[in-house]
Design a protein around this nucleic acid. Structure first.
Lengths: 201, 201
DNA sequence: CGCGAAACGGATGGACCATCCGCTTGTGTT
DNA sequence: AACACAAGCGGATGGTCCATCCGTTTCGCG
């Protein structure tokens, strides 16, 4: 106890080997998620060449690990949100934010389950999800105030609709190359339905 | 071998007790599915008060049982499809068929997993899914030929989009009462996006 | 009533999950 | 450099769930 650091809830930094293992685990998990199989902590351990206990110590549940894998994408989306809020054209801001959200969603396979989950393992995840939710809501409001959006879509519909499109892309088939294209098409249709003015662009 | 019946692949009718058990199993399964938990064949057996073996004999996998549970809804949808094809107004036919599909989908909890599945356990399921697919495709074509639908939506998009909306409704929250309303709203938005003429109705 | 086939039940081996504790390794101290 | 001790590691292990298999029971026909 020689280093007091501060009185805040600042966890003592990990030992170097522990930090390295943690990183290896996350990387392996990302790989496994990319392969489509549900995350199995035992598999991750074997893949890394580390004891099961190690994995479970760092990530008490598969959800916790998955959320850690998804975190970078969520952070990136938060940054996009920031950008969008600064845009002066409300419709364009709304449109591009949704587009980026969706692109990320259909590109990073760890994201969909995390966004669709009702509850989270990591508080950071909850924070980010809430942030994205409110950002989307604000963008929707702006677009609506500017008269560009039909009034029958609520703030609470945004996340479900994004998840819905992502799911539609999943159902449609495997072809990973076309995923973004398909998502774009679906979103375009949705936006056409949302848009108040008959002819977009 | 005293009863030749016919030479076709007509399975000998079940013994009476077997038929009864089979029905009990399906009913119990429907109840369990309605409760939201994933179908566990052991659970079903316990619920019915029958040996596990019995359940496994009638339904080799959980999917087979689930598809049997979902079958009536699928058949009903096929009938709706028949009706819709007879409708003289292509847009209305398209619209109401999709609406009925969606209502069924968000009402019967056994349906979503079956429709979204890439492969089926029962050949009858595959047949019905294929029938619905082609019915939807035909209705879409008719609507399109009548100039009522934008051309950037393909036949293959219909099923994914329906699954997507259903999923969106799921993500949105529990409230079972509002499910159909929400689905209606989402579909209306989608249709507004699909419709070529600016003002629907 | 008796017989063969059909159906039943549940004990059981196998797969997977997650915990717990004795051992190892890193790190700050003398 | 050697030590001490906390932090981290590993994997054997008990628990849970799944699905098979076969000895027993039940049905239905002659």
């Amino acid at each position: 106890m020689s280093r007091p650091i501060s009185m805040a809830a600042m966890t003592t930094p990990l030992r170097r080997d522990a930090a390295r293992n943690r990183e290896l685990i996350v990387v392996a998990a990302r790989g496994l998620v990319a392969e489509g199989t549900a995350l199995q902590l035992n598999d991750v351990a074997r893949r890394v060449g580390v004891g099961v206990g190690t994995v479970y110590r760092h990530f008490p549940t598969a959800e916790a690990l998955l959320e850690t894998v998804a975190a970078p994408s969520l952070e990136a989306l938060a940054a996009y949100g920031e950008e969008a809020l600064a845009d002066t054209d409300p419709w364009r801001a709304f449109e591009t934010f949704l587009m980026r959200t969706l692109e990320t969603q259909v590109t990073d396979p760890s994201l969909a389950p995390v966004t669709a989950a009702a509850s989270d393992a990591l508080t950071r995840t909850t924070e980010l999800k809430e942030l994205l939710r409110s950002t989307g809501a604000a963008l929707l409001d702006n677009a609506r105030s500017a008269g560009a959006v039909r009034s029958d879509v609520e703030q609470g519909d945004l996340v479900p609709l994004m998840c819905g499109i992502a799911h539609a892309v999943d159902v449609r088939g495997p072809a990973p190359a076309e995923r973004v294209d398909t998502a774009r098409r679906y979103l375009a249709t949705l936006l056409a339905g949302l848009r108040d003015r008959p002819r977009p662009v």
